Simulated scan of single mutants.
Amino acid sequence: MTSTPRLPVLLLLALATLLWGCSRQDIYDTAIGWERSSAGLEPDRVAVGEMDIAYLRNKESANGDSVVLIHGFGANKDNWTRLAAKLTDDFNVYAIDLPGHGDSSKDLDLGYRFEDQVQHVSRILETLDIDQAHMMGNSMGGAITALYAATFPEQVRSAVLFDPAGIFEYDSELVDLVTEGDNPLIPRKPGDFDRLMDFALEKKPFAPWPILDVMEEKAIANREVNEVIFAAIRDTGYEPDFRNAITQIRAPVLVVWGKEDRVINYRNADVFVERIPNARKVLLEGVGHAPMIEVPEESARLFREFIQSSH
């Protein structure tokens, strides 16, 4: 007796049939567009001084608060699409491509230390007329979110930090590799993107090969700016300024960390919770460096429960 194929398989077969003969870029654009639309999001752009900033926002406004999503190093706004799909019915979501990332401008001389990026985000949100929001950040974006909440406390309703950078009290596999001159977060040649995915994610979402190929091409093309950004943020966690600054956060803060994180040791969550007044933590078993990609439904649920309990 044969079983009926699952719906996602049928959709993939239909998509492959429709796109047969299309370029990899066409397939990538179609797939990304479908993910965004399914999440209730659409792309937009805004000029912020000398910066050209790409972002995703609700296709239809929701009768709720704004939520600003800040991705990590070498990542982009689409890292948030699957989590955002669980929020756009009730919140106005803004997923931003930080300068140097995604489809935003990539000026090598812009300044990419955490404090620089906080100011960039401030200018972006001012241009978008967002004066108050819940904020979520992953990795580098988590550090930016924490520092933003400390710098502009009146603008942040709550903050969720997914495996945040900024504190490296406990070393990780990444630290050892970078010390040896091998950084898996910066793809340089074919095959490196697979290695990056394997290193950063414990639960990898399915993506067809043409999409992964385009993602790898984009990552390799961004090598120069990625090296500039990584050098700018690399030593921040060893300086006291960041640790001192986050003690000034007044918004409710939830620190969420995947216990299988090879990029930043999950035990650093305790340092964040110790430094940030009234912060809470959640550790996720079997999850790596990007919970919003690996377990988007659970990540969205944690956010909703957190803000409800913080009222």
Rank of each mutant, 00 (worst) to 15 (best):
T17S: 14
W34Q: 12
I130M: 12
G237Y: 00
Q25D: 14
R113G: 15
Y238R: 11
V175Q: 10
P164T: 07
F272L: 09
S23H: 09
N76M: 06
I276H: 08
F206Q: 06
R6F: 07
G33H: 05
V271G: 03
I53P: 08
A31G: 05
L283G: 11
D78K: 00
R123T: 04
N63E: 14
S309D: 15
V214W: 06
R304P: 00
M292G: 01
A207F: 10
L7H: 09
A269I: 01
R157V: 02
I53L: 05
H289S: 15
K77T: 13
A221Y: 02
R45L: 04
I276F: 03
I96A: 11
L174S: 06
L283A: 09
F162R: 02
R262D: 11
E115P: 00
P8W: 02
I211K: 02
D26Y: 00
A31Y: 13
I246E: 11
V263P: 03
Q155V: 00
V214L: 05
S139M: 06
F242G: 14
A54F: 15
D171N: 08
E115Y: 03
R24T: 08
L212F: 07
R45N: 12
I276K: 04
E217T: 08
V214A: 05
L56S: 11
L87P: 06
E227H: 01
E115T: 04
T236L: 01
T81N: 13
E202S: 12
V48W: 03
V175Y: 02
P5M: 10
M140P: 02
A54P: 01
F73Y: 10
R195C: 05
Y94M: 04
K86G: 05
A14N: 02
R123N: 12
V287A: 13
A251Y: 02
L128G: 12
F73M: 09
E274N: 13
E115V: 01
K259I: 05
A47D: 14
T127R: 15
R195A: 14
R24M: 07
K204S: 10
L7V: 12
A219V: 04
L254Y: 03
D97K: 01
T145I: 01
L7S: 09
G49H: 02
S158T: 12
G40A: 04
I144P: 08
